[in-house]
Amino acid sequence: MPNSSQSPAPEAQAHEPRVVAFLCKWCSSAGSDLAGVSRIQYSANATPITIPCTGSMSPLYVLSAFNKGADGVLVSGCHPGDCHYMEGNYLARRKLYLVKQLLQFVGLEAERFRMSWVSAAEGAKFAEVIDEFVGDLRPLGPQTRLKAKH
């Protein structure tokens, strides 16, 4: 567990955020591997799902992850200019910008959705991104708005 510098509200402290991380196989997924083989310590809160390219992200994946109980959703892909398929990350950027705007508009705590560019060489950055996200999610407590209540 990272040593969080924030002081979250005591009642929220008990809740460990669960993050679903959609990682491009060409960069961020490899970045997470690098973080692993480099023995970098970082939060274990993220469940990675490897996707072929951030351009393949359906907004439905984001909504569905929240629906199934995720406290945060991360989409991580290649830096602009580095997409294996030339433009997938640019398309993702536009699409997911709109998703974030929509979440914000209906009051769905848009900060629970995050995007990052992490290359295959950036193991340290990957660890940072996860730690930061988990740290920012912790004070928010459990995500209840989109989670299915059966």
Partner: peptide
């Protein structure tokens, strides 16, 4: 329910973007 209807309406909205 709220969660399922939200999922429907938000998906539809983004699909119409």
């Amino acid at each position: 329910s709220v969660s399922e209807s939200a999922l429907y309406h938000l998906t539809r909205a983004i699909h119409l973007a």
